[in-house]
Design a protein around this nucleic acid. Sequence first.
DNA 1: TTTTCTCTCCCCCGAAATGGTGAGGGATGG
DNA 2: CCATCCCTCACCATTTCGGGGGAGAGAAAA
Lengths: 239, 239
Amino acid sequence: MGMMQRREHILEELEHAQELDALQIAIEELRDHFGVDHMVYHWVSANGDQYGCGTYSDAWRDRYIEQDYIRTDPVIVGCFQRFHPVDWKRLDWSGKAARAFQREAITHGVGNQGFSIPIRGPNGQFALFTVSHHCDDDTWATFTDANRRDLILIAHEFNQKALEFEPGRAPEQARALSPREVDAMTLIAIGYSRAQVAETLSISEHTLRVYIESARFKLGALNTTHAVAKALSRGLIVI
Amino acid sequence: MGMMQRREHILEELEHAQELDALQIAIEELRDHFGVDHMVYHWVSANGDQYGCGTYSDAWRDRYIEQDYIRTDPVIVGCFQRFHPVDWKRLDWSGKAARAFQREAITHGVGNQGFSIPIRGPNGQFALFTVSHHCDDDTWATFTDANRRDLILIAHEFNQKALEFEPGRAPEQARALSPREVDAMTLIAIGYSRAQVAETLSISEHTLRVYIESARFKLGALNTTHAVAKALSRGLIVI
DNA sequence: TTTTCTCTCCCCCGAAATGGTGAGGGATGG
DNA sequence: CCATCCCTCACCATTTCGGGGGAGAGAAAA
């Protein structure tokens, strides 16, 4: 089986997978296929849930979770601010904690080289697809140049499949807001006071309050700020 | 020049482009290359700035902006809620306004078929890469199946290049929030009152207020609700 | 070392937002 | 045609928020 055929085969199996385990199997096969030390996919959902699969050692994964490294890992922090896939060398490794983290990761078998692809979805979903390897800079540069596009596509296939399996996907489908409610919530969200919003919309402040309360009710929100947050994270309003 | 060579050539030219105009040129070439009626790239940043390029008629573009269709266009609304690329047929076209919009779009030369790829970046950036064509369902399904992956990659290349040229990129790079500020803003965003947040975090309400005000200052927000909205739309907090 | 940031605490008071309830005309959809 | 939603307006008392001060300890970065 040729290189491309092998890859297509793995991705096709993934596409038709019915169970979450298939992701773990596929990522191990892809790791072997690309001939790198590690390949990891990992996401954080809107409600703080996490899911990950990959080839890091159990010890490292446990340690990572135990130490809540997700909050300080320079790869996570750096990718969260970027759109593009990024080579680990280009991240900010200054700082005591970052260097200590790096040392610890390498002792746990993580490669000295890495390439991570950030992926974003609605409601603040953020996922990271990472390949890591132990080699010199030139070898790594050659590898990433050659496989960049494939890795991007694979990252997306993975994310798509992972989202399919996500349990808490579309449970709470909020009722859509009326046009006036959208106007009101949008202006509130950009910092206007109720008086300013009412003036902007040319309605009385009393009327405005009806919209806000109506929106709050529809969104199941506890107060105005909560309603704005919910409306934003569901894409009902945009600022 | 073969099909793939032609595409590679267009993308390579795009990659080395130094001016924003190159995007417009590239998208027209790609449209011709794929043999579709229209191809459009279009993004919205957190601060409301927009940029777009594509092959829609000037009349339609002007009309779209004039009517602020970006707020009601079912393609935008639908894609904002999704991660995956989506065929227009799968969007919600019920509702009077949506159907009227669709009719008007078609009279302006937009195809009856469409395929849109949502792309997201840090700080709430949201972009859409769309191909549209006039043909029957089967023809369109064949086309999208065959070109789905290529279109995803092209969408990313486009977005990458567009971000390079974006003028207002780094200016309003909000300072990151401190851990306690993130805690405070997150709890506020899920509807807690100041008193509840203070109790949850086991700090005095006075201290809590310092965090909120500090976050508000860092985010350049006018009030708490505004600060929550900004933090959310920049991905600094997640609910 | 010095500076800069973070985290924690405290005061006061006026302005603003909230929650509950009610009501009438108009548009839309089944 | 009738139910359902949308838009508009109004009053009440209570809770919450906003803005203005100031201060000390500790950690980390430059």
